[in-house]
Every structure is written in C-alpha cells, then in structure tokens.
C-alpha cells in the first residue's frame, strides 16, 4: 500500500439514507468520534454523524452497525481510485 498516494487520514462515511439511528456505532466507538445528528433522514431516524477528528480507523463502528451499507470505514492509505477501476 502506497500511503503517499492514498488517504492521508482514516475516513468514515455514513450513508445517512441507510442509517436507522440505532446508536450502536456511537456506543461502540472507542474515541467518541460518532454522534447522533439532530435532523431526520428519509425514514424518520436521527442518523449518525462523524466528526473525523480522533478516529483511529478501528472499524468497530462498521461491525456494530446492522445495515450492510450504512457505514464505510476507509483507512489511512486507502486508494480511492482503486474503486473506480
């Protein structure tokens, strides 16, 4: 993995449309990087939000989340271009 061309920091993407606001990711995050957002999504849930700062890319939030596509964790060094190819 060539870190110089990949992500400079861990990155968590929350797909708000798929989030059911269960709060499990927030509970599970060891660094308190996740939080409940005040607004409602299309299903009427308060989706989880990501602060970014302090995230260690541990993936706990990913495994806590019951929705297959609600959370994506990209670790430092991840090359997003790979995806598009």
């Amino acid at each position: 993995m060539n870190e110089s061309i990949g992500l400079k920091a861990h990155k968590v993407i929350i797909n708000e449309d798929e989030c059911k606001g269960c709060g499990l990711c927030i509970e599970m995050c060891p660094k308190d990087v996740l939080f409940e957002q005040p607004h409602l999504n299309r299903m009427g849930y308060h989706p989880a939000g990501y602060r970014g700062e302090g995230c260690i890319g541990c993936g706990h939030c990913f495994y806590a989340c019951p929705e297959p596509g609600a959370i994506t964790v990209l670790k430092k060094g991840y090359v997003e271009i790979e995806e598009e190819v």
């Binding site: 797909n15 449309d17 798929e18 059911k20 606001g21 269960c22 709060g23 499990l24 299903m43 849930y45 990913f62 495994y63 806590a64 989340c65 019951p66 929705e67 297959p68 596509g69 609600a70």
Partner: peptide, 16 residues
C-alpha cells in the same frame, strides 16, 4: 438499500 430489520437488530450484524 436498507434491510427489513428493526433498528439495532442483531441479524444485520451477523449478516455482515
């Protein structure tokens, strides 16, 4: 794009 499971249901986690 979302499952039929209730929020926080364990089935989803195991599926993943």
């Amino acid at each position: 794009d979302v499952t039929h499971y209730c929020p926080g249901c364990g089935h989803g986690v195991l599926h993943k």
